[in-house]
Amino acid sequence: MPENPTHTSGAAITAPLPPVSPVTLRINGQERQLHIAPWTTLLDALREYLDLTGTKKGCDHGQCGACTVLVDGKRINACLTLAVMQEGRDITTIEGMGTEEKLHPLQQAFIDHDAFQCGYCTPGQICSAQGLINEGKAKTAAEIKELMSGNLCRCGAYTNILAAVQEVVEMELKIKN
């Protein structure tokens, strides 16, 4: 092997890569220590460094909603934020929503209403629906449709997704009133 390998393509590296730095994230109630480069998105941190693969990478550009997680109870696209920016916040992923023994009401409703086919968008749909419930703005089917529009489903299970979300929204409204 040559001691100084010649770059065969691209420009020469002119700046040294910055070292990885320690980042502490609070995910599903647990403090997790990571050593990552600053350009690691929250989505990549979850999937590639913490083995929390429930959160899905769809478009990686904030257009599909598959990567939706909750930060301090608010839904966001994990692909469009850096992990380091979320230090000190409370992050909830699909893994923190329910357990195998006791499903989250939204998880149960998605099963009851057959609200998915391939299931790839489902974790994002469920986290987004929880965010929608936390916001408390959507009450009717039309409002739920509009406020779930950041989550795409390529299988086209929208009708059943709407039914599942609406059931839980109505349940929550009953509890409140």
Partner: peptide
Amino acid sequence: GASPQLRNM
């Protein structure tokens, strides 16, 4: 504009 997730960010 945008989606609920983006408006939260």
